[in-house]
Measured scan of single mutants.
Amino acid sequence: RFRLSPAARNILEKHSLDASQGTATGPRGIFTKEDALKLVQLKQTGK
């Protein structure tokens, strides 16, 4: 289970993504908004 920032949680839910597909870069291993946006971008480019 990942620790998600509220913004990251919202983005992941909106795009039906799972945090385990990305890398948490925030302090103390928190999955940040920026991490979520990177994951969305990867999904949109098909990689």
Rank of each mutant, 00 (worst) to 15 (best):
R1L: 00
R1V: 02
R1E: 10
R1Q: 07
F2H: 00
F2G: 03
F2S: 09
R3D: 03
R3L: 06
R3Y: 15
R3H: 14
L4Q: 07
L4K: 12
L4R: 03
L4V: 12
L4C: 12
S5W: 00
S5L: 01
S5P: 00
S5D: 12
P6K: 14
P6I: 12
P6G: 02
P6Q: 13
P6R: 14
A7W: 00
A7C: 08
A7L: 05
A8F: 02
A8C: 00
A8E: 11
A8N: 01
A8I: 00
A8W: 00
A8D: 07
A8Q: 03
A8H: 03
A8T: 06
N10M: 13
N10V: 14
N10D: 15
I11V: 08
L12K: 04
L12A: 08
E13V: 06
E13S: 07
K14Q: 14
K14V: 10
K14I: 11
K14F: 11
K14W: 05
K14N: 13
H15S: 04
H15F: 08
S16Y: 06
S16H: 13
S16M: 01
L17M: 12
D18N: 14
A19V: 10
A19I: 08
A19T: 06
S20W: 01
S20Y: 00
S20T: 12
S20I: 02
Q21R: 05
Q21H: 10
G22W: 01
G22H: 04
G22K: 02
G22L: 05
T23Q: 09
T23G: 08
T23L: 09
T23R: 09
T23W: 05
A24T: 05
A24Q: 03
A24G: 07
A24C: 05
A24R: 04
A24L: 04
T25H: 03
T25V: 05
T25G: 05
G26A: 03
G26N: 04
G26S: 02
P27V: 04
P27F: 02
R28A: 12
R28E: 14
G29E: 10
G29D: 12
G29W: 00
I30T: 14
I30R: 06
I30D: 12
F31V: 07
F31I: 10
F31L: 06
T32C: 04
T32K: 04
K33I: 14
E34R: 08
E34L: 05
E34G: 08
D35N: 00
D35M: 01
D35G: 03
D35Y: 00
A36L: 01
A36F: 05
L37F: 06
K38E: 07
K38A: 12
K38C: 05
L39P: 07
Q41C: 00
Q41M: 11
Q41I: 02
Q41S: 15
L42E: 15
L42C: 14
L42G: 11
L42V: 14
L42N: 08
L42K: 15
K43I: 08
K43S: 14
Q44C: 07
Q44I: 14
Q44T: 05
Q44D: 09
Q44M: 06
Q44G: 12
Q44L: 12
T45I: 05
T45K: 06
T45E: 14
G46N: 12
G46H: 15
G46P: 05
G46R: 12
K47D: 04
K47M: 15
